[in-house]
Amino acid sequence: MNETSEHTDLNRREFLTRSAATAGVALAPGVMLYSVAQARPADEPVSSAVRWGLLIDSNKCASGCSDCVSACERENGWGTGSTDETHSDATQKAQWIRKVEVKNTETGHAFTLPMMCQHCENPPCADVCPTGASFRRDDGIVLVDKHICIGCRYCMMACPYKARSFVHETLTDQKPYAPRGKGTVEACTLCVHRVDAGDSPACVEACTAENHNAMLFGDLNDPESPIAKTVATYATTQIRADLNLNPGVRYQGI
């Protein structure tokens, strides 16, 4: 668990957060089994009894590491995970998840974290979408129904997290379970196809598999889930909490 200890001068608070989160992760493997066992039957609609959430511990997230990003690219077929988007320039290519490096220029304190759709309870993208293509599923996952997306991009104007991308050209190399195409807006789906099958998102799986353990996925509504227990015990942060959007993605150590 010390691959993240490149900071040698831990202050007391950081130390505490870090050790606490490590304790939380120790629970994780058992819990993953639990959540697989609880996979919803295929013919049962999602319900608001579940609120999928993601807890990201910035203390364990190494600067320069982009395992979560690569996993998402491979899983969902964008970026290096696809042979498409050869015409789009760097500012036009889709990015469902990205690593953001943050530095406090006054104190010098720096941290890094993955940024993606925050799966808000009150998503501004869904508010502004004229056709209702942007919507929040009952279990809290915010999606774009590309069948009725007209490509107006108003959701991209409204999203505080710049989590969305517009597809600027014809695609042919999509993954069967992750449809995406020209003229529509897309974003992190929280790997909805995996979640519906009882798995955790690809980014979380990769982060755990590489033993970084900076990402914890689960049901925020289930008091027994490790994510619910962690957010109940330790201080977590919502990015742009001032907007009161109640995102499903929370952060620690920022």
Binding site: P130, T131, G132, C149, I150, G151, C152, F166, G183, T184
Partner: peptide, 19 residues
């Protein structure tokens, strides 16, 4: 992005959208 789906803008309304 999808001008061909203009009809969708007439048949699907999200009444919270200022658009």
């Amino acid at each position: 992005g999808h001008p061909d789906r203009l009809i969708v803008a007439m048949t699907h309304y999200n009444f919270k959208s200022i658009f």
